[in-house]
């Protein structure tokens, strides 16, 4: 078993002819919040989607190199992306609970369709558990049959987190989970991260250096498809080695 939750080796990603991720070697330790920060368009979302092979939905995208999830190369021969995605949950830049499913069913659907629970009681229990984990239970327990349209942006995003947690993944990928959420919702989600990292490894994409500083243990700075610097969050923010990183964390570079 590897010591790392995620490890990439010479990872390159192309959209058609465009090289977006230009050779990245990255190691994400287990049970931490790893922040991936960088300016808009530098390839954060693209890199994140390579970890759970969601990038394959985009026919233009092509991946070279290796991504090891808990020691196993997910781009190896015979690996089924479906198994990878069960282990590696994802939360998206724009809160996307399924609009046609109730709050309850949004959390339950992955469990039902993957046959992960045996009885209705177990399903109820797991849905409650996931909503509690996502700090949402108290706000929705009285209206589980409502549709997510009635939730605030921050609640929607926590519902999506519950949807992912319900499958009990090992790793949670979060693509700017607070980009479309108000400040109060943002604080709740950030608090949630501290809880979750005890059991999960979290890769958090953000374009706000301050958020990375607040919530992460490790941080990687991505710029124009290259990993400029990576290390303990405190060290990177106190004494960045690279000039570009310094400019970015002080807000000079946007």
């Amino acid at each position: 078993m590897s010591d790392f939750a995620i490890e990439t080796k010479k990872l390159r990603i192309y959209y058609g002819e465009n090289e977006i991720i230009k050779g990245i070697d990255l190691k994400v330790p287990k049970n931490v919040v790893f922040a991936l920060m960088g300016p808009s368009g530098c390839g954060k979302s693209t890199l994140l989607r390579a970890f759970n092979r969601l990038l394959e939905l985009n026919k233009e995208a092509r991946v070279e190199g290796e991504v090891l999830i808990l020691g196993k190369n997910v781009y190896g021969n015979g690996v089924n992306p479906i198994d990878v995605r069960k282990q590696v949950g994802m939360v998206f830049q724009y809160p996307n609970p399924f609009p046609h499913l109730s709050i309850y069913d949004n959390v339950a659907i992955g469990l039902k369709l993957n046959h992960l629970v045996k009885s209705k009681e177990e399903l109820d229990e797991r849905v409650k558990w996931a909503l509690e984990k996502a700090f949402l239970w108290d706000e929705v327990k009285g209206r589980l049959d409502d549709y997510p349209a009635s939730l605030s942006g921050g609640q929607k995003q926590r519902l999506v987190i519950a949807r992912a947690l319900a499958l009990k993944p090992k790793i949670l990928l979060m693509d700017e989970p607070t980009a479309n959420v108000d400040p109060i919702g943002t604080r709740k989600i950030e608090e949630l991260l501290f809880e979750l990292k005890r059991e999960y490894t979290i890769v958090l994409v953000t374009h706000e250096p301050m958020q990375a500083a607040r919530v992460s243990d490790y941080v990687g700075f991505l710029y124009l498809g290259k990993l400029v610097e990576v290390g303990l969050t405190r060290e990177i923010f106190e004494k960045p080695k690279h000039e570009l990183t310094e400019k970015y964390v002080t807000g000079v570079l946007v």
Partner: peptide, 8 residues
């Protein structure tokens, strides 16, 4: 993406 992300 959300659907495939659930490992379906």
């Amino acid at each position: 993406e959300a659907s495939f992300g659930l490992g379906l």
